[in-house]
Structures are given as C-alpha cells and as structure tokens.
Computed example of a mutant assay.
Amino acid sequence: MEQREMSLFDHIGELRKRVIIILIFFFVAMIGGMFLAKPLIMYLQSAPEAQELPMNAFKLTDPIRIYMTFAFASAVLLVFPVILYQLWAFISPGLHEKERRVTLSYIPISFFLFLLGISFSYFILFPFIIQFMGRLAEQLNITEQYGINEYFSFLFQITLPFGFLFQLPVVVMFLTRLGIVTPKFLSQVRRYAYFVLLVIAGFITPPELISHLLVTVPLLLLYEFSIWISYIAYRKAKKAEEALEKQENDSSVQ
C-alpha cells in the first residue's frame, strides 16, 4: 500500500471519523456496562478486604453514582481495544506497509498490559493498603465506618492509573519505531524519569514506605524494561531502513 499525502482538512476529517466510531462503540459498550455493573460490584464487595469494612451510603445518590461509575469503567475497558485500533488507523497512512503490520501487533500487547496493571494493583497493592489503613485506624483507636462511594472511588484511584502506567513499554516501542525516541535518549534521561515515577508513586500511595516501594519498584523495573524494548525496536527499525535503502539502490541501478 502506497503512502498518500493528506491535507490538513483530510486529517481533521479522518480524526472526526475515528472519534465518531469510538463514540458509537462506547455507547454500545455503555449499555453492556450497565449489565456488568451489578455483578462487578457484588464480586468486589465479596472480596475479603471489603467484607471487613462496614460500607454505607452516606448520600441518597451514592448507589446510583457507584452503579454508573462501574458502568462507565466497564465501557472504557470494553472499548479500549477499539480506541487503540482507531488510533492506529488514524496514523497508519503515514507509515510504511511493514510499519503498519508491526504497530498493529501492539494493540493486543497494550490491552494485555492494561489488564496486567489493573490486576497487579487490585490483587497485590490494594489489599496491602487496606490492611495498612486498618492497622493504623486500630492503633489510633478509630472506629472504621466508610461510605461505599469513598471505598470504590479509592479503588479506582489505585487501580486505573496502573492500567495506563503499564502502557509505558508499548508507548516507548511505538515512539522508537517512529524515530521519536532512542534507547540512548531514554538512558540519558533515566534520572529524570525515575524522579517523575517517584512523584507518581507518591500521589498513588499513602505516606507509608512499604506501600510506596510496592508501587515504585515495579514502575522503575517497567522503565528499565521499556529501555530494553526500545533497544530491540531501534535495531529492527534500523534494519528495516537499511533494507529499504538497499532495495531503492538496487532498483535505481536497474
């Protein structure tokens, strides 16, 4: 497939088309999310860390707010692969045929990492934070009485950021294939990246060392893994460029 030049209006029209497709799929997914919301809420309420906490509705609108929040979150999860594909479809006209095939394969990887990040934060990090908060309340002789809206809002605050943070290797791989970043650049800015990740970890976790390390260490390992992924993608991109140049030189000689 040949690359084609697109004007600014063509790009705007293409973007509008992709956004409309996403909104249509999101509307359908939102309907599905309304059916998934109740079983999801019941499942999360049956978790051991949730059963130990007396949760109440402190406002009349808390039940519907929780229900709609879960419906929205379920819709986002369902439509996430569609968003990734539409993003790929928007930028694919500017890529070579081989680059299109390679970047298309990033979509299932990205979705898997999104689920992995949410799973890590829910099954490992979140229970630890809940236990820490419970021990602290007991030491301070505080009776725990939580609203269900606050509980699930805190749950989303912990889990959803990890789903997006775990996209780092895919984003780095994609930017490397486009020639925007290199493994050398990522290594040079490592100290600044570490600082940013430490700040992010500080926002996500409570002011306690162990929980902070539970967030920081995976993020730092994720960054180092991203450098390694960038190195592999960079080598493949260079080989593809050399093969393309050789092919063009051979065709010009003929």
Rank of each mutant, 00 (worst) to 15 (best):
A137H: 11
V181A: 11
V215Q: 03
E97V: 08
M42S: 08
F166M: 12
R135K: 09
E97M: 13
Q157H: 05
Y151A: 08
F26D: 11
L222H: 05
Q45R: 10
F72S: 06
F25M: 13
F90P: 03
P169W: 11
F132T: 07
L53E: 05
S92V: 05
L213T: 03
F156L: 14
E14G: 11
G32V: 04
V172P: 00
F152R: 02
A240W: 11
L168E: 05
H11G: 06
T176M: 05
S230G: 06
I109Y: 07
L23T: 03
E224V: 14
T69E: 00
K17G: 08
G202K: 01
H96Y: 14
A243F: 10
L168S: 11
E248W: 12
I22M: 08
V217I: 15
R65S: 15
E241H: 15
A89G: 01
S110T: 13
L116Q: 07
I64D: 00
S105W: 11
F25N: 02
T61W: 01
I227A: 03
P81M: 07
S187W: 10
V170E: 00
N249V: 01
L244W: 01
I124G: 07
I66S: 01
A89L: 04
F132S: 05
Y106N: 10
G13R: 12
Y146S: 03
S252Y: 15
Q145G: 04
F112A: 15
L95R: 13
V79N: 04
I158W: 01
L213H: 04
L116C: 13
S7K: 02
I24Q: 08
L214V: 06
L222V: 13
L160M: 15
I41Q: 04
F35T: 14
R235P: 00
I31G: 07
K38D: 14
F203E: 07
P207S: 08
Y85A: 08
R235T: 03
A240G: 10
P63W: 00
F70T: 03
F195N: 00
P54E: 08
I124R: 09
Q167G: 02
L87H: 09
S226K: 14
L213A: 14
F114M: 02
A201I: 00
